[in-house]
Design a protein around this nucleic acid. Structure first.
Lengths: 181, 181
DNA sequence: AATTAATATGTGTATTTTCACATATGTTTA
DNA sequence: TAAACATATGTGAAAATACACATATTAATT
């Protein structure tokens, strides 16, 4: 159900197509929510049925036609109602790499280190990209009224990835010392 | 599919009942995976069908009968095969609180701060509990061969929660300053 | 004395999420 | 020149996950 509110939250700022919303998920929502593009399209259709959003089709010749979604008053009402009155669900996490880490005692130390090195690279890249995004959108830490959320969550993302990196280094160190004996 | 490997990983250490596995999920697996108890019971049934695990029923008079699951050779083989040869999926996160944070510009500053204070408390408690668990299981940082994974992931959990806490404080500060104008 | 928590395992159903596939064109990269 | 990527929106089916409920006893708490 919460995917709906994530979409309404984005639409409350700007009208957008399913494709654009998918891009926004990859760029900013990624710090706290993941969703497949097919799920986003399907949810938008349902939201339109329930009159939480409405769409207009834009004909295009060079590219496929697109559908721009706009939030309705009812949609905005329900968004606020959810925000203020619905209980906050516990976070849900599925981390394939940490799952493997939890079984590192089954594999050779070098293999385990290789996993961590790769993950480190991955988070390094993510960190670099998010920092660039922040510099672009909030030059010297300034943000507009309706960018508050993005400012806070992108900072969360950065701290999260930094914490990942330092943990990776620590874990690699533990494994190296273990490998010496 | 990965829930299966999480369960096999735990069973590879010790035989256990569905109930015990659920407890272990709450205690240690929580740092990287979430699963509902009904899902765990169902997955165990499927795993037994596929001969990745086998169970024996223990009759009890005071409490309900229980089923102890044990990993099979086939189960262990498949676990290693997954660990070493299957691609590492991207992590998946659903965080209801951060989703609300992303829409903080819609609500009064005091309300937003209240959300963060509550989340801070929540992570403070989690941190305290995980630290206690660590002290109990790894007194002065020592761990047994097959505890390596738990050692590494619980440390991840601690750093994660510390990072959450410091972000919460930072975000509350941002909101307080914003509220002054 | 009554309620809640812990112990223990599930089923039926609904919802959520992913996977494979479908379609069509323009631009960029190797 | 071929392959890959970006643009753009979906469907059908499967898998994963959650929700409500069911059952039964003991121990601890209020």
């Amino acid at each position: 159900m919460a995917l709906r509110y994530a979409l309404l939250g984005l639409l409350a700022k700007n009208e957008a197509t399913g494709y654009e919303l998918t891009q926004q998920f990859k760029e900013t929502v990624i710090h706290f929510w993941t969703a497949h593009h097919t799920q986003i399209y399907r949810e938008l259709l349902k939201m339109e049925e329930e009159r939480l959003a409405e769409s207009k089709v834009i004909q295009q010749t060079d590219y496929p036609d697109k559908k721009i979604y706009k939030i309705t008053d009812k949609g905005f009402e329900q968004l606020l109602e959810w925000m203020l009155n619905k209980p906050v669900n516990v976070p849900k996490l599925k981390d394939d790499l940490l799952l493997r880490v939890s079984m590192f005692h089954f594999i050779p130390v070098e293999q385990a280190i290789a996993f961590l090195e790769k993950s480190k690279e991955h988070h390094q890249m993510g960190l670099r990209m998010t920092k660039e995004w922040q510099d672009e959108h909030f030059p010297n830490g300034t943000f507009k009224e309706d960018e508050l959320g993005e400012y806070l969550t992108s900072e969360f993302g950065i701290r999260y990835m930094e914490s990942w990196l330092s943990w990776c280094e620590w874990a690699i160190d533990v494994l190296r010392k273990k490998g010496e004996f």
